[in-house]
């Protein structure tokens, strides 16, 4: 009998006082560091009334910043979806030399400072950079222009989609793809009809995180943007400029928009997480 008995697990019950104190400390932190700032942002934004709020947001520079942010996010999410699926596909469904190096490299943007990431692109594409003279000769503008901002954002947000897909695809294995192939489906059809539907929630989730980060990215974009008002200012950059110029209401109004997007992302994330859990758990 003793062979199979496990030692009794130590059971700890804290005194009610301890539980209450811990809960309160947790709530206090949450309020101080998350709720209070959020309230401050919206409070400041609306401190001069709705009319002023709207006036600030409809300012041409603000409109341009909002538009640029949306364009950048659109490009980087779309491209990172493609890159992320390809990378995850290659890593999970094939064996090739250098696979572990690629797996490690995917995480590089997470571990590197965004400022350094921005600088890399300046060093590559800037006027004195590696490809600078060639670009200038062909009248191509990357740094201090939209392509540079998109590139920097893609770099910073690259891991989100791939990181989300790799464990999901590893878990699903290759047998459904093999079944599709043996039934005569081409590689392309197999991808569209079998692989993609199986990863759709993971893909959406990755895109969501990628989008949130793309809209909020400051460091890398700041380095490559050049801060040209009305042209290369994204929302985070625009907020900083407004703030430095003591236009607090305007700064907080734009900030409130970003904060609102963040809240929206949070809700969508919660919904998706539930869907993913369901689609994972139900099939064994």
């Amino acid at each position: 009998m003793t062979l199979f008995s496990t030692p009794a697990a130590p059971i700890r019950t804290e005194a009610p006082v301890v539980r209450w104190v811990l809960t309160l400390v947790g709530l206090a932190f949450l309020g101080l560091f998350i709720l209070l700032p959020l309230i401050a942002v919206f409070g400041q934004a609306f401190s001069r009334g709705l009319a002023k709020y709207w006036e600030v947001l409809s300012d041409p520079d603000s409109v341009s910043a909002i538009g640029l942010t949306l364009v950048v996010a659109l490009f980087s999410v779309a491209l990172n979806l493609v890159f992320g699926v390809i990378a995850a596909w290659a890593i999970t469904k094939f064996e090739f030399p250098g696979k572990s190096i690629l797996t490690t490299l995917i995480d590089l943007p997470f571990s590197i400072s965004p400022v350094v990431a921005g600088l890399v692109f300046v060093l590559l594409f800037g006027a004195k950079g590696l490809l600078g003279p060639w670009l200038a000769a062909h009248d191509l503008k990357i740094i201090f222009a939209l392509p540079g901002i998109v590139l920097a954002t893609i770099f910073v947000t690259f891991p989100f989609v791939a990181r989300e897909l790799i464990p999901l695809m590893q878990e699903q294995g290759t047998s459904e793809e093999e079944a599709a192939r043996s039934l005569g489906a081409s590689g392309w059809l197999t991808f569209w009809k079998v692989t993609l539907p199986n990863i759709r929630f993971g893909l959406l989730y990755g895109a969501l995180l990628c989008n949130a980060r793309a809209m909020g990215e400051f460091g890398a974009v700041s380095v490559v943007s050049g801060h040209i008002r009305g042209e290369t200012n994204t929302m985070p950059l625009h907020i900083e400029i407004l703030y430095n110029e003591y236009q607090f209401v305007a700064a907080f109004a734009v900030a409130s928009l970003l904060a609102f997007l963040a809240l929206l992302t949070l809700v969508a994330k919660a919904v998706l997480e539930r869907r993913i859990a369901r689609s994972r758990g139900s099939f064994t």
Binding site: E176, E178, A179, A180, S182, S186, K193, P197
Partner: peptide, 25 residues
């Protein structure tokens, strides 16, 4: 025709669509 050890059914398709797959592609 290949029948896999762990079935490898397409999890997002109904039984009908699973069987129809080879004909549809």
């Amino acid at each position: 025709g290949f029948v896999f050890q762990h079935y490898a059914l397409f999890r997002h398709m109904s039984v009908f669509e699973n069987v129809a797959f080879g004909l549809r592609v």
